[in-house]
Design a protein around this nucleic acid. Structure first.
Length: 283
DNA sequence: TAAAATGTTTGCAC
DNA sequence: TGTGCAAACATTTT
């Protein structure tokens, strides 16, 4: 559920409640639910992975973390964290973080940092990245102050697409690669949105959870806890370049037959096994 | 069945 | 006070 594009879908799905009055509030959140009673929804908004319910003088911030979910009209799970009743239906939010705040959301949120927002600013993202030259590419993409909404799936897919090794240093990326990183973070997020709406997101994964590189047809490297963020990473040591690049490139040996067999049947051509017998034609 | 997973915050040790 | 790390949280799927 939780990457930015999924929150955009939620925001679209709850539009039927925009402008409506909250008739009843229940749920096991420890926040002061009573404050929401009788208030009208000014608007539903999102910032990265945050889902915001903007009321008069009060905003509800929902974060779904790893396991949160929601349903509209039908209660699909027991014990919702928050349930809002409207004249035309119900919104149920499960196992999520709920926080209330009274500040103006425009003063709290930097909308230009949200990859899904109309105000997304690649220039500002670049400036923030320039300030973190020692950060790893895999960590930088998950930095919500720079790429709000980007999660682990988007991270893996973006790095594969732009052929950048996840452990590359941000400061060592050539300017054009940095441009690509920023552009692809947004571009892939919107593709994620369209594919998710069509229920075909996984079908389009090229790297995330994959075992073989679709370009090189050799096994992906799978790291369980990569970078400061310690998240799963799937990448190709062959076509994803690690920056900085070494001054002298080590000669690359062709992968062994055993390795190639791991990716057989995925567009990979495995050389025939040499027969143990004597050659009929001497070399 | 145990383990892992689209994530973030908190609290403790140093 | 700052930082870095592990733990906590919570649920579904493999």
């Amino acid at each position: 559920m939780p990457e930015g594009p999924s929150i955009v879908i939620l925001k679209e799905e709850v539009q039927l409640f925009a402008g409506k009055k909250i008739l009843e509030v229940t749920g096991n959140t420890k926040e002061d639910k009573a404050l929401l009673n009788g208030k009208k929804v000014v608007s539903f908004e999102s910032w990265g992975k945050h889902f915001l319910i903007r009321l008069q003088g009060l905003t509800v911030k929902i974060h779904f973390l790893l396991f949160g979910s929601y349903s509209i009209n039908e209660m699909r799970k027991p014990n919702p964290r928050l349930h809002l009743k409207f004249s035309n239906g119900d919104l149920y939010l499960y196992s999520c973080s709920v926080k209330l705040f009274t500040e103006d959301p425009d003063a709290v949120y930097d909308w230009s940092a949200d990859v899904m927002n109309d105000n997304w600013s690649p220039a500002k993202a670049r400036k923030k990245l320039k300030a973190l030259p020692d950060a790893l590419a895999c960590d930088a993409l998950l930095n919500q102050e720079i790429f709000a909404g980007v999660g682990n799936i988007i991270k893996n897919e973006v790095l594969f697409r732009i052929r950048v090794h996840p452990e590359s240093l941000i400061g060592a990326l050539p300017p054009r690669k940095l441009t690509e990183l920023i552009a692809e973070a947004r571009k892939y997020s919107f593709q994620f949105l369209e594919w998710k709406k069509a229920f075909e997101l996984k079908k389009h994964w090229l790297a995330h959870t994959k075992t073989c590189c679709p370009r090189c047809h050799i096994p992906f490297v799978k790291e369980k806890h990569l970078g400061k963020t310690k998240r799963r990473a799937f990448f190709c040591e062959n076509c994803q370049v690690r920056y900085p690049q070494p001054a002298i490139l080590a000669p690359r040996l062709p992968p062994s037959r055993k390795i190639l067999l791991k990716c057989a049947g995925q567009g990979n051509v495995v050389p025939a096994k040499r027969s143990g017998g004597k050659r009929s034609i001497p070399l």
